Amino acid sequence: MTHPNLDNQSGTVAVLGLGPMGRALAAASLAAGHPTVLWNRSPAKATALVARGAILAPTVADAVDRASVVIACVINYEAVRAVLSGLERPPSGTFVNLSSGHAAEAREMAGWAAQRNVNYLDGAILTPAPTIGTPAATILYSGPRTLFDESLPRLESFGGSSAYLGADVGTAAAYEMALLDLFAMSVGGLAHAFALASTEGIAPTAFARFARGIGGLLPDMADRFADQLTSGAFAADISTIASAGSAIGHVRDAAAARGVDPTPLQAVQSIIERAIAAGHGGDSYARLAQSLVPADAVEAAR
């Protein structure tokens, strides 16, 4: 039985999951003036949002039954399926999954939706919860274009850029995983660098001054990688893989001498050594990205 306050609310946004990101999405929806229904396993998390005008649904079914757009923002795709498992009938509105996972999971979820005649979009939030509802937010979407266009007036309330990436429902998740890869490796490198600096008595604030400069090199490097990987030509205009191998060796030795775990450096060194062994020592760093992926996997993706 549907909650009486939820009947016949055309244009309602339902938010399933009230972690920090779910609460931010719901708050942005309310701020934009959209009727907003909430569901969470722990109802107490909805208190502040209800005070601002949101409706707390007693069950998932009550939340999704009359919503035009249903937003799921939980820990992973398995949790999404668990949340929806008790529904006697599928969502009638467009179901937008903003939970984190990889492309294969997104496509599997789309298959689940298709079997139940559910209109499904997949999405990936690229910025932290405090950005939601501000110009700094970035959310990627993939799936049927018509569903994205129809849902956009609600999705735009989350702020910033709502980027549509195409009909392949796994594309948004694929971008998210690759970007998380970059973030995770960058954070790991930053932590390792601060650790190494600390063993030489370098103050964190003093080191940060120069660490920012290294970070500033990445935007131009990303563009060069993209250009060279697209063209398939890896001219080493700035530096070579062989020189990188030498530099990594120095850093590995420095870390080992100071008792800093050299494992992350050894992993990078292994990648470089494989590229050199394959005859690519004189190429640019961008060649390393190609070297990491088997040729048949690249062809299959195309």
Score class of each variant (00 low, 15 high):
209 R>H: 15
212 R>L: 15
212 R>C: 12
212 R>Q: 15
213 G>H: 10
214 I>V: 15
215 G>N: 10
215 G>A: 09
215 G>L: 15
216 G>V: 02
216 G>E: 08
217 L>I: 07
218 L>V: 14
218 L>T: 07
219 P>A: 04
219 P>W: 01
221 M>N: 01
225 F>V: 14
227 D>E: 12
227 D>L: 14
228 Q>P: 10
230 T>W: 00
230 T>R: 08
232 G>H: 03
233 A>P: 00
235 A>P: 12
235 A>D: 15
236 A>G: 09
237 D>W: 03
237 D>G: 13
238 I>K: 10
239 S>V: 13
240 T>C: 09
242 A>R: 13
242 A>I: 05
242 A>E: 13
243 S>F: 14
244 A>H: 15
244 A>T: 12
246 S>N: 08
247 A>F: 09
248 I>L: 13
248 I>W: 00
249 G>V: 06
252 R>S: 09
253 D>C: 00
255 A>H: 04
255 A>W: 04
256 A>M: 02
259 G>F: 08
259 G>I: 05
261 D>E: 08
261 D>A: 05
261 D>G: 06
262 P>N: 02
264 P>H: 02
266 Q>W: 00
267 A>C: 07
269 Q>S: 14
269 Q>R: 10
270 S>N: 13
271 I>T: 14
276 I>P: 02
277 A>Q: 03
277 A>E: 07
279 G>W: 08
281 G>F: 04
281 G>A: 01
283 D>E: 14
285 Y>M: 15
